[in-house]
């Protein structure tokens, strides 16, 4: 399936919002792939982190449907190694925010089993809330 690229998308609202929320210049990434090479969660992802960013560069909103943005643990390994200083965790966060703002929470806190809540570290609960709640 051939994808139509056009100025409406490459410089459209989606790209603008990602850049605004993340504060990143998405075209600064030259797709070297170092982020994907070192990502500790990459083995579970449907798209590599660099591929998610590539979709954003092309203005393709399908980046929002990737599981990768939810699997990103914000560990900052990619940022610490990026030769261009691109803050990919912020871009991942921006993509998550766009989904959450549109579709609402992805986590029902009250539905979590009581024994899970009592056993899970408090930090994990806070981080999870931050990540999955709008």
């Amino acid at each position: 399936m051939r994808v139509r690229l056009s100025i409406r998308e490459t410089r459209g609202e989606f790209v603008k919002r990602v850049e605004e929320i993340s504060g990143q210049e998405i075209l600064a990434c030259n797709q070297c792939g170092k982020c994907s090479a070192g990502c500790p969660a990459a083995m579970a992802m449907d798209l590599l982190p660099s591929q998610v960013l590539r979709l954003v560069q092309l203005g393709l909103e399908e980046a929002l449907t990737s599981e990768t943005i939810w699997l990103c643990a914000s560990c900052l390994t990619c940022l610490s190694r990026c030769p261009k200083g691109v803050d990919l965790p912020r871009i991942m966060e921006a993509l998550r925010q766009l989904v959450l703002r549109k579709e609402g929470d992805r986590l029902e806190l009250s539905a979590l089993p009581a024994d899970f809540l009592s056993e899970a570290p408090q930090l994990a609960i806070i981080a999870g809330s931050r990540k999955y709640l709008s």
Partner: peptide, 15 residues
């Protein structure tokens, strides 16, 4: 213009 973007693995076109 019919081309490809091998970085995303997509065939692309630009009018």
């Amino acid at each position: 213009v019919w081309g490809a973007d091998t970085l995303s693995g997509k065939g692309v076109e630009v009018a």
